[in-house]
Design a protein around this nucleic acid. Structure first.
Length: 423
RNA sequence: GUGGGUGUAGCUCAGCUGGUUAGAGCGCCAGGUUGUGGUCCUGGAGGCCGCGGGUUCGAGACCCGUCACUCACCCCA
């Protein structure tokens, strides 16, 4: 047991697992590009107000899960607990032309007890679109997520969707809901009997039987959003359906952050256990920009947890690699002239992945390393090759020692390798 | 924050009711005669048995504390 370990709830990602991360983030970057999004990199910590106003001071995350600290200049900062607030803060600050379409890959920090698929530092990929309330934007954002999930091989995924309504109709609905809850307080679950008033919408999301009973007899969001919101939502659902992405309407779907308006959605993986089966979520947030001091600007986005996406791939039994990180060539040098250095450099400059051994290992030992590296070819330079100005090329996939080898002059190695690879 | 399980080699784990120099498999390193991998054989390195205290002639085993990991609740990604 080493003296220092990664802090509670954090983890190191090292090879070969990190190849999956490279592949996943690379795939997301590719899809973001296809959909016209550009990368945004913003600070990992912000004035605490960005998050408090962004995600709502009453949300669980803001109340008890934020990593808050004071710097040497007495400024109060928090490590970002999610991706959206920072991006919107950046939007307000720079006021770029709209619609502004940004994607990100970032760690997120929440102080909570770690558990399967839940960490104090986890990682998300996501996108945001600022400056358009066109339902086609909602469709595009959700489609991007969906196509990305398809591309990484996920099959058992469902899209849950709901509309929270805009400021006014949602406000009116919350009043109705409050009245209903108040009349039935004693029938709620133990916990919500105490806290229902703080965030009544959360009671809709409660999985306990008493709360479900009470809320199913009460007002439901879809019946109370205004005509405009209702029409907007219908267009989103129709748009998705036309692309073959069938959303499941879930009138109980409300999310943990207060900023959501209108379209709200969540992706769940049926292959994961219920407690942590949300692999992504998002929605529209038409008031958030104002909360952070900007002009009224509608926005929508989603975030998806990298750890959970990889867990889901595992749970679905997907074994295909997301990226090829195999070595092309392994250079074996048993001379004392270190001829490997220049040969490696030459091949690498031509774009090949090249590995070699160090520390003057024996021929046999270097061959073993070449085998373990998974390289297709081994290039051998021993005293004989050195004297003849040649290099031995050996195909490591072949079992036959003699037939697998050929010799070429040192000057034509690169050409010879490329001929073999493309053959 | 609350509760359950677990901490022995790089990894996965054995170590029976406390008893000598702490084990296996995999991995790692080196050999198996002249410069050649994947199989096989032989040898080797590597552990303050999470940490601190206690009981005992004697503790990896028992007791207390502590830290960490893990799972669940809450909530989320």
């Amino acid at each position: 047991m080493s003296e220092f370990q990664a802090p509670i709830g954090t983890h190191d990602v090292i090879g070969p697992e990190s190849y999956e991360w490279e592949g996943l983030i690379g795939t997301f970057a590719e899809f973001a590009h296809r959909f016209g999004f550009s990368l945004v990199i913003s600070p990992m910590f912000e004035d605490i107000g960005v998050f408090n106003r962004g995600i709502g001071e009453n949300s669980d995350v803001a109340k008890k899960e934020m990593y808050v600290f004071t710097d040497r200049g007495d400024r109060t900062y928090a490590l970002r607990p999610e991706g959206t607030a920072s991006v919107v803060r950046a939007f307000v600050q720079h006021n770029p032309t709209t619609p502004w379409k940004a994607w990100y890959a970032t760690p997120a920090f929440r102080y909570e007890r770690p558990q399967a698929g839940r960490y104090r530092q986890h990682h998300q990929v996501g996108v945001e679109v600022l400056g358009s309330d066109d339902p086609a934007v909602d469709v595009e954002v959700i489609t991007l997520a969906w196509r990305f999930y398809e591309a990484i091989g996920l099959k058992r995924i469902r899209l849950l969707i709901n509309s929270m309504g805009h400021d006014e109709c949602r406000g009116a609905y919350v009043e109705l809901l409050k009245a209903h809850l108040k009349a039935n307080v004693s029938s709620l679950c133990e916990e919500h009997q105490k806290v229902w008033e703080q965030n009544p919408l959360r009671v809709l999301d409660c999985k306990k039987a008493p709360c479900i009973e009470v809320t199913s007899n009460g007002p439901m969001l879809p019946d109370h959003v205004c005509a405009e919101c209702s029409a907007h939502f219908a267009k989103v659902v129709a748009g998705l359906t036309s692309l073959g992405i069938t959303p499941e309407l879930n009138p109980r779907l409300v999310r943990g952050f207060d900023y959501y308006t209108r379209t709200t959605f969540e992706f769940v993986a049926d292959s994961l256990d219920g407690a942590q089966n949300a692999i992504g979520g998002g929605g529209r947030y038409d008031k958030l920009t104002e909360e952070l001091g900007g002009k009224p600007t509608s926005g929508i986005g989603f975030g998806s947890g990298i750890e959970r996406l990889l867990l889901t791939r595992q749970a679905e039994g997907i074994s295909s690699a997301l990226v090829d990180r195999s070595v092309d060539v392994f250079v074996i040098d048993t001379t004392d002239a270190d001829l490997a250095t220049s040969l490696c450099d030459e091949l690498r400059r031509h774009g090949l992945s090249v590995e070699r051994a160090f520390d003057g290992r024996s021929m046999k030992s270097q061959m073993k390393l070449a085998d373990k590296s998974g390289a297709r070819f081994a290039l051998l330079i021993g005293p004989q090759e050195q004297a003849a100005g040649q290099v031995t090329i050996r195909d490591l996939r072949s079992a036959d020692h003699e037939q697998a080898q050929s010799q070429v002059s040192r000057d034509s190695v690169t050409t010879a390798i490329f001929n073999l690879i493309t053959k």
